[in-house]
Computed example of a mutant assay.
Amino acid sequence: MKREAAAPEAGKPRDPNRPAPGIDVDAATQVVLTSLEDDKAEEIVSIDIRGKSSFADMLVVASGRSARHVGALADHVMRKLKEAGVKDVRVEGMPQADWVLVDAGDVVVHLFRPEVRSFYNIEKIWSGNHTTALPS
C-alpha cells in the first residue's frame, strides 16, 4: 500500500474529548484494511484526515456486494479491532446494513452497499490528494 505524507498537524496533541483507541492510528488502519481485503470488500479507500477533522485521523470507505456482506464486513472489522486492542469500538447501522459505520476512535470505517455509496459519495467530501485507493 502506498503511504501518503501525514498532514502537517499530525503531531499535535489529541483532542481530550476523543477516546484513546488503545493502539496507534496506523496500526488500527492496517487492521481494518487487512480485514476488509481478507473478506473481499470492494473499492477500499483510506483517507488521511489528520488536521482536517477533530473526530478522527483516518477514514476507510469500502463496499460490500449486499446488505449481508456489508454486515459481515462490519462484524469482522469490529472483532479484529477488539482483538488488536482497540478499546470502545462502536457500530451504527447494523440492522439494515445499507451503510454501516464502525467508530474505532481515530479510525472511522464506512461500509456501504454500492448504490448507497454512490448516492452519498462521502469520499468526494473528504478526499483531496490524501486518498489511497487499494486495488479491488
Rank of each mutant, 00 (worst) to 15 (best):
K2E: 15
E4V: 13
E4Y: 09
E4D: 12
A5H: 14
A5K: 15
A6L: 15
A7H: 03
A10K: 10
G11S: 06
G11V: 04
K12I: 15
P13H: 04
R14H: 13
D15F: 02
D15R: 13
P16K: 10
N17S: 14
R18T: 06
R18E: 13
R18G: 09
R18P: 11
R18L: 03
P19S: 02
G22Q: 10
I23Q: 02
D24K: 12
D24E: 05
D26R: 15
D26N: 12
A27S: 10
A28I: 04
T29V: 06
V31F: 01
V32C: 07
T34M: 05
T34N: 14
S35D: 13
S35F: 08
S35H: 10
S35V: 13
L36T: 01
L36I: 03
E37F: 12
E37P: 04
E37L: 10
E37H: 10
D38Y: 08
E43Q: 11
I44S: 07
S46V: 01
S46P: 09
S46W: 04
I47V: 06
I47E: 03
D48M: 03
D48C: 08
I49M: 06
I49D: 03
I49Q: 00
I49A: 00
G51S: 02
G51W: 00
G51K: 00
F55R: 13
A56D: 01
D57P: 09
D57S: 10
M58L: 14
L59H: 08
V60H: 01
V60E: 04
V60M: 05
A62M: 01
G64R: 05
R65I: 09
S66F: 00
S66N: 03
S66E: 06
S66K: 04
A67F: 03
R68N: 15
V70L: 09
G71F: 00
G71T: 03
G71L: 02
G71S: 10
A72I: 07
H76W: 12
R79Y: 08
K80P: 13
K82D: 09
K82S: 13
E83V: 05
A84I: 08
A84T: 13
G85V: 03
G85D: 12
V86I: 07
V86S: 05
K87Y: 07
V89N: 08
G93C: 01
G93W: 00
M94C: 04
P95E: 12
P95L: 09
Q96E: 15
A97N: 05
D98C: 13
V100L: 03
L101I: 12
V102F: 00
V102A: 01
D103L: 06
A104T: 06
V107Q: 11
V107H: 12
V108N: 09
V109L: 07
L111T: 07
F112Y: 06
F112Q: 11
R113P: 15
P114D: 07
E115I: 04
E115F: 02
V116T: 06
R117H: 02
S118G: 11
F119L: 14
F119N: 15
E123R: 01
E123P: 07
E123T: 04
K124W: 07
K124V: 09
W126E: 12
S127W: 06
G128D: 15
G128E: 14
G128H: 13
N129H: 06
N129T: 15
N129G: 08
H130W: 07
L134W: 02
P135C: 08
